[in-house]
Design a protein around this nucleic acid. Structure first.
Length: 562
DNA sequence: ATGCAATACC
């Protein structure tokens, strides 16, 4: 026999809390029932609490609604509601929500609200980091210290992260040193912060220390350290990390695979990257993007102008997607690199979007490479008019170089003055090479390396052999108003040549030499790499800011298109 | 009942 119960409103309200709330509609229905029904206080609170958790934390919830519920909840003794709402605000992408998060935290410093506790601070530091509120965050650091939560590892980990985001890596280090119970997150936060603050070599050292001290590593750790490997071209460390995955010490999550693809591609091993990609069962958009980008920087689909036109057209006609400026930018870059400067300029003029700084730079750079100084000179006017970005000196450097290559030294000096006036500093060129388990970084004319004498000795030898084979320094690449002899001297001490010499000394004959550069190489260095690859029978891989160059037997994979 | 760290490109 079945029994059918008749639901009184009271029973209904009790029942509702067992149901999952899935929409704001449900939530409001429950809210009405809670208000209208005279259930006992405990039940009422249980339902309100459930309602609150849904509105605050569910992706289909509503933060404003959750906030308004705060007054009906027993918040004076229990920090859960404040903490949960701060947490919800702190994970929102909207900056305004982060101010709400902090304002709620400030409420908590008043009576009769509950005091912030060890759960509160991690969320609050997250908001400080997002809003880059360095001084405010530092004040809170003081509060943490006074409040007695300075030994809570989670609180300190979030503080380390905050300091890195706010560009205060020294403070991050200090906090890390003071954590007595460091966990995986403490170490990982440090490694990731170091990569983000452009100290990838330090990040790798810390990873080594972590492994030596037998701290367990997890997926997040290796994703961060793989970024450092990609940045510095540390293939051996990257392979070691891959080894951890193969030994099943690390799970092969999607993010790990993507990081491996990126690492292999950026370290010049495109085939290994392809192997990792092929093994992924469920390839997500990040894996595809990393793979496509890897193939592109390796020049595996360069110069397919007609293909590119087809895709650009297809976007609109087949898929109904409006091309963005980046899509046009790709097309212009493709045409310009291949020397079709007039077609490239026509696209820029006809496209339905206003060209930006990057677009003009692409075009002007190509004019310089292909020696079309008249067009370049004309286009530079657009760049000078458009330049508003305060921190970016790329345009000034480019325009200055174009002037210099045409011998217009006064115009070049004008660019330099403009940069100085705006307080912009051109990043110095540097080259890194991994040898004997360490990363060596060189700058122009660098003599700080412990083996500097050997390096310069090797350079002399290389120069002699190259000159015997007909090498003549391309002094026009030195864009300074100095004598040719001095130009040749400077040219010969470019950072990538120092790295090359070190590679020749410290790697075994016949082994490949891999160099990572932060800017683009000059034409002279490019030529020297080509000749060296033939004369010394070495495969040389140079990664510049944009792409890879594979030098084999006197030729480069970029077909001299850069 | 609540916590900290993360991938590509631009």
């Amino acid at each position: 026999m079945k029994v059918y119960y008749y639901h009184t409103p009271q029973a209904q309200a009790q029942q509702t809390h067992k149901m999952e709330i899935s929409t704001m509609g449900h939530a409001m229905q429950l809210h009405v029932q809670i208000l209208k029904t005279d259930t006992n206080q405990t039940q009422k609170l249980k339902n309100l609490s459930k309602l609150f958790t849904f509105t605050a934390l569910s992706p289909s919830g509503d933060l404003n609604y959750a906030h308004s519920l705060l007054t009906s909840l027993p918040t004076s003794t229990n920090s859960y509601y404040h903490n949960t709402l701060i947490r919800a605000y702190a994970r929102s992408p909207d900056p305004a929500h982060h101010f709400h998060s902090l304002s709620l935290f400030l409420d908590m410093l008043h009576d009769p609200t509950p005091s912030p506790d060890s759960f509160t601070y991690p969320f609050v530091f997250k908001s400080c980091a997002r809003l880059r509120l360095t001084r405010f965050g530092k004040q809170l650091h003081g509060l943490v210290f006074k409040s007695g939560f300075w030994s809570d590892t989670c609180v300190l980990n979030s503080l380390i992260h905050f300091y890195f985001v706010c560009d205060e890596s020294d403070h991050a280090h200090k906090v890390f040193d003071k954590v007595t119970d460091r966990d995986v997150v403490s170490w990982t936060t440090m490694i990731d912060g170091l990569v983000d603050s452009e100290q990838p070599v330090k990040a790798i050292h810390l990873f080594d220390r972590m492994v030596k001290e037998r701290i367990g590593v997890n997926e997040v750790t290796v994703v961060s350290v793989l970024r450092a490997c990609a940045e510095t071209g540390s293939l051996s460390v990257g392979r070691r990390v891959h080894g951890l995955v193969e030994e099943r010490i690390i799970g092969l999550e999607a993010k790990v695979s993507t990081a491996l693809i990126n690492m292999y591609a950026k370290c010049g091993c495109i085939d290994s990257a392809i192997r990792v990609f092929d093994e992924i069962v469920d390839k997500d958009v990040f894996a595809w993007t990393a793979m496509i980008n890897g193939l592109a920087t390796h020049g595996r689909n360069a110069g397919l102008i007609n293909e590119a036109f087809k895709y650009l057209e297809g976007m609109r006609k087949k898929h109904g997607v409006k091309p963005t400026i980046q899509h046009y930018g790709c097309m212009v870059d493709l045409l310009a690199r291949a020397g079709h400067l007039r077609d490239a300029e026509e696209i820029v003029r006809k496209m339905p979007i206003e060209p930006d700084v990057v677009m003009w730079r692409t075009l002007i750079w190509a004019c310089k490479v292909h020696g079309d100084t008249i067009r370049g000179d004309r286009l530079m006017k657009h760049l000078e008019l458009l330049e508003t970005d305060g921190n970016d000196c790329g345009s000034y450097v480019l325009v200055g170089n174009v002037y210099a290559s045409a011998g217009k030294w006064q115009d070049k000096a004008r660019m330099r003055e403009l940069m100085n006036w705006k307080g912009l500093v051109k990043p110095p060129g540097s080259s890194k090479i991994e040898a004997n388990g360490a990363i060596h970084e060189f700058t122009l004319g660098d003599s700080t390396h412990p083996e500097a004498d050997n390096i310069y000795g090797k350079l002399d030898e290389v120069e002699e052999r190259l000159r015997e084979e007909g090498y003549r320094p391309k002094v026009s690449e030195v864009l300074l108003e100095i004598e040719d002899e001095k130009k040749a001297f400077q040219l010969w001490h470019h950072s990538e040549k120092l790295a090359l010499a070190y590679g020749l000394i410290r790697t075994n004959p016949g082994d490949g030499i891999r160099i990572v550069k932060n800017l683009r190489s000059c034409e002279d260095c490019h030529e020297v790499m080509k000749l060296t690859s033939r004369i010394y029978r070495r495969e040389i891989v140079v990664r510049d800011r944009i792409r890879f160059h594979y030098f084999r037997n006197g030729e480069c994979s970029c077909k001299d298109l850069w």
